[in-house]
Simulated scan of single mutants.
Amino acid sequence: MKENRHNVILDIIKKFEVETQEDLAEKLREEGINVTQATVSRDIKELNLIKTLSHTGNYKYAQANPNKNSSLSSMAYIFSNTAISVEKIDKMLVVKTISASAGIAAEAIDSFQLDGIAGTIAGDNTIFIAVRTEEKAEAIKREIEKLIK
């Protein structure tokens, strides 16, 4: 029963921009699956769903780890769905993310092991990246821009 519900949830979030747990519970009910908000909350955690910014500018649920075979591609997926912009200031890069996503996005940047990065610091929706040279900063900025688009 739980496995079936999880499969239905994954289908729903692929087809619709589901913004809240209540919306997800309603969609499940439309599919004939009666759930409580607590069950939906547990399912979201078990499925590793995250909130991402959709192309319409609203937040929606998405699967954080769509390809379990590749942690690097998973991190790129997470980064591309949470990062909004990147700006170069001298030898520093500033990456803006959706709210509460800077930590996981910074972890993704660290996992890419880009040459020239001295370190990253993440807040709630901002990441500061210290880069060793301005040339490396420009190259890393271009790489990050590719991931954002």
Score class of each variant (00 low, 15 high):
residue 47 L to R: 07
residue 42 R to P: 06
residue 68 K to G: 11
residue 14 K to G: 10
residue 53 L to G: 01
residue 119 G to R: 07
residue 11 D to A: 14
residue 95 V to N: 01
residue 5 R to T: 09
residue 36 T to N: 15
residue 109 I to Q: 01
residue 3 E to F: 13
residue 111 S to K: 07
residue 110 D to L: 09
residue 85 S to E: 01
residue 146 K to E: 09
residue 121 I to L: 15
residue 35 V to E: 11
residue 35 V to T: 15
residue 147 L to Y: 03
residue 132 R to E: 15
residue 14 K to W: 08
residue 54 S to Y: 07
residue 11 D to Y: 09
residue 102 A to G: 08
residue 115 D to I: 08
residue 113 Q to F: 09
residue 8 V to G: 03
residue 41 S to K: 13
residue 14 K to C: 10
residue 11 D to Q: 15
residue 61 Y to K: 06
residue 56 T to L: 13
residue 29 R to H: 09
residue 146 K to Y: 07
residue 106 A to K: 02
residue 30 E to I: 12
residue 74 S to R: 06
residue 29 R to W: 05
residue 100 A to T: 07
residue 68 K to A: 11
residue 81 N to Q: 13
residue 123 G to E: 06
residue 93 L to V: 02
residue 11 D to L: 11
residue 110 D to V: 07
residue 144 I to C: 01
residue 14 K to I: 08
residue 14 K to A: 15
residue 132 R to I: 08
residue 91 K to R: 15
residue 57 G to N: 12
residue 56 T to F: 12
residue 95 V to I: 15
residue 63 Q to S: 13
residue 103 G to W: 00
residue 13 I to W: 05
residue 9 I to L: 07
residue 120 T to M: 03
residue 18 V to N: 02
residue 59 Y to K: 07
residue 57 G to C: 11
residue 96 K to G: 01
residue 85 S to I: 00
residue 55 H to P: 05
residue 135 E to V: 14
residue 90 D to N: 13
residue 133 T to E: 12
residue 145 E to R: 11
residue 68 K to F: 13
residue 142 R to V: 12
residue 55 H to E: 15
residue 120 T to F: 03
residue 83 A to M: 03
residue 137 A to F: 01
residue 32 G to F: 04
residue 127 I to G: 01
residue 75 M to A: 14
residue 22 E to M: 14
residue 18 V to I: 15
residue 63 Q to N: 15
residue 136 K to P: 01
residue 57 G to K: 10
residue 38 A to F: 13
residue 8 V to S: 09
residue 144 I to S: 00
residue 81 N to C: 07
residue 91 K to M: 07
residue 2 K to R: 15
residue 84 I to P: 00
residue 33 I to C: 09
residue 65 N to A: 11
residue 41 S to E: 10
residue 114 L to V: 08
residue 76 A to H: 06
residue 64 A to V: 06
residue 118 A to R: 12
residue 26 E to P: 04
residue 126 T to A: 04
residue 81 N to P: 07
residue 135 E to H: 11
residue 5 R to C: 03
residue 10 L to T: 11
residue 116 G to K: 04
residue 128 F to V: 10
residue 117 I to N: 03
residue 24 L to Q: 03
residue 84 I to R: 02
residue 46 E to I: 10
residue 103 G to N: 03
residue 104 I to L: 03
residue 57 G to I: 10
residue 91 K to Y: 03
residue 126 T to Y: 02
residue 147 L to T: 02
residue 28 L to V: 09
